[in-house]
Design a protein around this nucleic acid. Structure first.
Lengths: 207, 207
DNA sequence: TGTTTTATGTCACAGCCGTGATAGAAAAAG
DNA sequence: CTTTTTCTATCACGGCTGTGACATAAAACA
């Protein structure tokens, strides 16, 4: 006999509604009332699962980060022993990893859109600063490890500075996300992947 | 005999105040009242120079775009006949042009910060969409022309696709702007220029 | 001078917002 | 059954928003 309401499920429904509002109208318009309406709930009901706006926002941001990092971890686990890969295989793996961060389909586009709005808000809203920093630091570490993997495998071009290349790839990915979300008709998914592939390829000696 | 108040100067003062508020507290908190306070004006006085919020925001965004594009045009005019440059000189010129877009000092940091907030808002606010698109399109054209210049001068590496490289450089610059503004302690001005220099250098055959 | 335009300041209104308080329905526990 | 907890729903308050209306003051003009 299932309980009529599953609190965990309810919170997920609310967060999904919040994401839809943010994608459609921006984080600024994601008030308790608009989110409750989007979720088909009464605001009183929503406030029974989230004590206040701060808790809702914090939970939503954590949920989104968990989803993305979960997919990344899954990919890494599925990869197995990456050191045993050939250079070309390693490059393909890293490419897939970076593509997970780009808005190449509706799901990832929504995530990136929300993520960008959250980060922009985190610049001036102390409530988001720590989380935004951890997220940025996490992808930064991931990218650095990915490039270090290529370097260990001998796939990386000679004379490349790992620090500089990590920053360059991280900023390129962020810039692609930004432009793909803000001007999707100018920078579509195809162009995005083409640029990413060209960049990663230019870091290697592969044909 | 100067008039006691110069309307044009007043509007500039108001826009400067708006920029300070946006940099300090975000575009969201830049209301007519907070901007008026920041400018040391009464809200009634402010509304004498700007009919409403929409006009103020529109004027402010245009002002910022004019400032940046003005500096770029100045650099291009000062450059003279670029086609007569050597490959190394052309690369230096293009580097300087791109550096004008990065938040390398307080003035540029403020401009980029405001610009990013405006663009984020433009995603969901139709009032900003046209301007945001024109600005993005302008820098896109500029970057493409800069790379075309290098290509004509023979400085560009063989086998590079101008379309892909334009997108790559544009997104890299945007990503550097984003990270430098959101995490200035992680990506400082030095790291920014190092990455930019490494990228532009990698596009050429220069030593 | 008087008149007109420009500039500044103040008030009130409706519309959101988050949130505290509270009531009542529904489900679970005793 | 009764009691308790969980859930849903509604009201009211203060705070902030843009804006229309208006009064006053200052400068420019005639």
């Amino acid at each position: 006999m299932p309980k009529l309401v599953d609190p965990q499920e309810r919170r997920r429904v609310v967060v999904d509604a919040l994401f839809r509002v943010v994608v459609r109208e921006g984080l600024q318009r994601a008030s308790l009332r608009t989110v409750a309406d989007e979720a088909g709930l009464n605001i009183g009901s929503l406030r029974h699962y989230f004590a206040g706006q701060a808790e809702l926002m914090d939970f939503a941001m954590r949920s989104m980060i968990d989803r993305v990092s979960g997919r990344l971890v899954q990919r890494i686990e599925d990869g197995g022993e990456l050191r045993e890969y050939t250079a070309a295989e390693q490059l393909r793996f890293v490419t897939g990893l970076m593509e997970e961060l780009l808005p190449l389909d509706d799901r990832r586009r929504a995530e990136v859109t929300v993520f960008l709005d959250f980060n922009a808000a985190a610049r001036t809203n102390p409530a988001f600063r720590d989380l935004a920093f951890k997220a940025a630091d996490g992808t930064r570490r991931l990218i650095r490890r990915a490039l270090a993997l290529l370097a260990d495998g001998g796939a990386l071009r000679a004379g490349l500075d790992l620090d500089v290349e990590s920053e360059r790839l991280a900023s390129l990915v962020d810039g692609l996300c930004l432009n793909a979300v803000l001007h999707p008709d100018v920078l579509d998914a195809q162009s995005c992947t083409r640029v990413l592939h060209a960049h990663l390829h230019s870091l290697t000696d592969l044909p």
